[in-house]
Amino acid sequence: MKKIWKRAATAVAFTGILSAGVMDAHADYKSDFVYTYAGSAQTLANQMNLYPSVMIAQMALESNYGTSGLTQSANNLFGVKGSYGGKSIVLKTQEQKGKKLVTIKDHFRSYPSKWASMVDYTKVMQGSHLSGAWVSNTSNYRQATRALQGVYATDRYYSSKLNAIIAQYGLTRYDTKQAKTTKVSYKVKSTSTSGRITHTVRAGETLSSIAVKYGVPERTIAARSGLANTNHLVAGKRLVIK
């Protein structure tokens, strides 16, 4: 009996270790998603009078940290409906009707890339009906998330969900004073001989953030610049943008 108990205890302990490992991996993919796109979101939000923290939180919530069917099949990170460049995808979605959740089918925008989704989101957010979430019309991000509830999304807990994500990942660190400006300048070098636009990598920049700045897909910049490793950029490296 003792041997059987010991084996059972060992099995339980081993299962516990596996479960912990699965939980850690589950948490890691969420963190990886947030920090992969945080820099690019900050750049765009700063340009468009939006809170970077709110943009990052919406991206995480709407795409389920990049794992939703809409994101994987249409690169749609923000659940934006309609069509983009004439392209859309029809999926089931839940809408809040009073206290009930109703499942319906709707058209969602289909993007050629995730950076296109991010850029388009900032344009959608310029609509007057969403002006309550602008930096210039609020004192803090909580007022912005409150303004989105019932307007951007019908979920009656939308604001609290966004606030929870912002708190969990400390996203207010991205809400710098620069976020109150509507335009951010970038150093773009253009050679007079070839007419090419190049960008000199600065410390901390990623290929994703650079792609968003210029509105050019990451793979295009990588191909034009002969990048072998797109996950690590060396400061001082000159990239060919166009």
Rank of each mutant, 00 (worst) to 15 (best):
M59S: 13
G132Y: 00
Y51I: 04
Y51W: 14
Q72E: 14
G150C: 04
T200A: 01
N140V: 06
I166R: 09
M59P: 03
S209I: 15
P217V: 01
K100F: 07
S194F: 06
Y121H: 15
T200F: 02
A179T: 12
K213G: 04
A27K: 14
Y65H: 07
K3V: 14
S209Y: 08
R224S: 00
H199V: 09
D28E: 14
S208K: 13
Y121M: 12
T71A: 15
E95N: 00
A20S: 13
G85N: 11
T181V: 11
S113Y: 03
A25E: 13
T176E: 06
A57Q: 04
L130G: 00
S159K: 05
T206C: 05
Q168S: 13
T172A: 02
A60W: 07
V119E: 09
G215N: 11
L91H: 06
D32S: 12
A223P: 00
A41H: 09
G85V: 08
K2S: 12
T193F: 11
S209W: 09
K242C: 03
T176G: 04
T191I: 08
A167Y: 10
D120A: 06
I4V: 14
V151L: 02
H26F: 15
G195D: 04
G236P: 03
G86A: 05
L162G: 00
K30A: 05
T193A: 10
Y169V: 12
I165Q: 07
N137W: 00
Y214P: 06
T198F: 06
L171A: 12
L44I: 10
G69E: 12
A20L: 15
Q42I: 08
S31E: 15
G127S: 08
S185P: 10
G85S: 09
K189C: 02
Y158A: 01
I197D: 13
Y186R: 13
R173H: 14
A60Y: 03
V151M: 04
A9L: 15
V135P: 01
G66R: 02
D28M: 12
L18Y: 09
A116H: 12
T36V: 05
R219P: 00
M48P: 02
Y152D: 03
T176P: 03
M59W: 10
D24Y: 15
S117Y: 09
S131Q: 04
Q149S: 07
L227K: 11
L101G: 00
I197F: 12
G150K: 08
Y121L: 14
I56R: 05
F78C: 07
V102S: 04
Y29P: 00
A27L: 11
R196K: 13
N137E: 02
P112N: 09
A167L: 10
D120E: 07
Y141S: 04
Y158L: 05
S160R: 11
S83W: 03
M59R: 09
A228V: 13
S209D: 14
E218F: 02
A203P: 03
T145I: 00
I210Y: 06
S194V: 06
D32N: 13
G98H: 07
S208Q: 14
V34Y: 10
H129L: 10
R156A: 06
G150M: 09
L91C: 02
E95Q: 02
V201Y: 02
L239I: 08
M48T: 11
Y111H: 10
Y214A: 03
S209E: 14
Q168H: 13
